[in-house]
């Protein structure tokens, strides 16, 4: 009989919980019309390669750190030596820079290691496409995204390599 009363009381308790939830505001957003505000460090978007807005020089120095750290092994970079840049970040460039977005898991490691803040993530919802090629980011597409970041600054994620290293630096470290 003790178990019967426990069942009865438990039932009432459960029904109280559902009743309380019935009068809460709905958390559903009607997606295409309503959108959730994206956080400042949103990682779900696409990628971009940045360049110096003054001189138009690309920031990537082809060091391949992002290629080495990428857990999904989707980044491929080849190095090209060229003329020294006016802003003094070196004389090496990336020749080929590809990122296969299909397998990206948004871990942000490539951005954390980038010494020149060349690769960044954009604060837009993930681009959905119908083809595999649509998710394959060549250097041209990444540079296009970089140009869009200059036009629409709200699209840029707050996280860049320099900032991420600053934020995660242990206290008292040089």
């Amino acid at each position: 009989m003790a178990s019967a009363s426990a069942i009865f009381l438990g039932t009432l308790k459960a029904m109280g919980t559902t009743l309380r939830n019935a009068f809460r505001r709905s958390t559903t957003l009607r997606y295409p019309k309503e959108k959730r505000p994206l956080p400042a460090r949103w990682r779900g978007g696409s990628f971009a390669l940045t360049f110096d807005p003054g001189t138009g020089e690309e920031n990537c120095i082809g060091c391949r750190l992002c290629e080495y750290i990428c857990p999904s092994e989707i980044i491929a970079v080849t190095l090209r030596k060229g003329e020294a840049r006016a802003n003094g970040i070196g004389a090496t460039y990336c020749d080929v820079f590809t990122l296969d977005y299909q397998a990206c898991m948004q871990c942000e490691l490539c951005i954390q290691v980038c010494p020149t803040d060349a690769i960044v993530m954009t604060r837009a919802l993930s681009p959905a496409t119908r083809t595999r090629e649509g998710l394959f980011l060549s250097k041209e597409r990444l540079m296009d995204n970089g140009r869009r970041l200059l036009e629409e600054t709200s699209l840029a994620s707050e996280a860049t390599g320099t900032k991420l290293r600053e934020w995660t630096k242990p206290e008292g470290a040089a």
Partner: peptide
């Protein structure tokens, strides 16, 4: 059911 789970349901 949607109301009990803070959803909207068929809309």
């Amino acid at each position: 059911a949607a109301r009990f789970q803070n959803r909207i349901g068929p809309y």
